[in-house]
Design a protein around this nucleic acid. Structure first.
Lengths: 128, 128
DNA sequence: GTAAACCTACGAATGTTTTCGTAAATGCAA
DNA sequence: TTGCATTTACGAAAACATTCGTAGGTTTAC
C-alpha cells in the first residue's frame, strides 16, 4: 500500500535541502535555492505550501515562521524514482541502468570497491 | 554543444517504441501504446506531431501515412536522463544510484556477472 | 464514381507546474 | 504605540503537458 511519491523537479530540490539540513523555515530553504537559481520568496513559499497539502512536507505552525520537515524519506523516494526510471527508460533492466551510470560518470576507486563488495554480497545471498 | 534532451513521460513511451521497432507510422505506434493504456488515435498523432516540431522525431511525409523516426539515440537519451537523476536525486554520486538500483530490483546472476566484468574493466582503465 | 475508411491538421479544453503580486497578520524596535 | 520588516494566505497568470473533437484531404473497395 506504499504511497506513490512523485515529486516534481522543483519539489525535489526542496526535499533535497530538507533531507540535508533537517527542519527548516521557508526562508532557510529559499536562501539555499537562491544560490542556484533565482525565484522570488513567495514562489518558494507557495511550493512548500502545496507540498504540505500533498503531504510531502509536515509543518509546525506554532511559531511565526512555520517550520517544515520532509514527510517522505530520502531512501524511499530515491528507490521509487529509480524504479520508475528502470521501467520507463531501461525497459525493466536494472543492470542496463547500472552500466549506463558507471559508464559515463566519474566514479573513484573507493566507490568502485564499495559497489563490488555490494555485488558480492548480493551474489552470496542469491546462492542460498 | 550537445542538445538537451528532455522528453516527457508520454514522449518517452513513444521513443521506446520507435527505438525498438524502427521507423513507424502513427498507427503502428498507437497500436503498441494501446496495449498499455487507452488514449485516442488523435492523441498519439498530436504527440508525435509535437515531437516532430521539437525535433525529437524525423518525419517522412512522402507517402499518405507519414513515417516517423527517432531523432535522438537511445544511448544518448538514457545517458542524459541518468545524469540528471544522479545530479538531482543522488547529489552527484553515481555509486549511490548504482547501489539503489542493485538493492531493490531483481538482477539475475548473468547480469550481475556482466556488471562485475564491467567494473573490473573500469578499474583496469583507471589504474593506467 | 461514390462511399467508406483512413489520414493529417488544427483548435481548444483540461490539468498540472511554476511564478509572482497583493493583502492581511504577526512580531519587533524605537 | 506606531511603524517597519517579515511572514502567511490567496488568487491568478503563464507555461507546459495531455487529451480529444472536428474538418478536410487522400486512398481504397465496390
Amino acid at each position: 500500500m506504499t504511497a506513490i511519491i512523485k515529486p516534481t523537479e522543483s519539489e525535489l530540490e526542496i526535499l533535497n535541502i530538507l533531507w540535508e539540513k533537517g527542519p527548516c523555515t521557508v526562508r532557510e530553504v529559499h536562501e539555499v535555492l537562491e544560490q542556484n537559481k533565482d525565484a522570488g520568496y513567495t514562489t518558494t513559499l507557495k511550493l512548500m505550501q502545496i507540498m504540505h497539502e500533498k503531504s510531502l512536507l509536515l509543518r509546525d505552525a506554532s511559531s511565526k515562521s512555520h517550520i517544515y520537515t520532509a514527510n517522505v524519506s530520502q531512501q524511499k523516494t530515491q528507490g521509487q524514482l529509480v524504479k520508475r526510471m528502470i521501467d520507463n527508460v531501461f525497459n525493466g533492466s536494472a543492470s542496463q541502468l547500472v552500466m549506463q551510470a558507471l559508464g559515463h560518470h566519474q566514479t573513484n576507486k573507493a566507490e568502485l570497491e564499495e559497489i563490488k563488495k555490494y555485488l558480492e554480497e548480493i551474489e552470496r545471498l542469491q546462492s542460498k
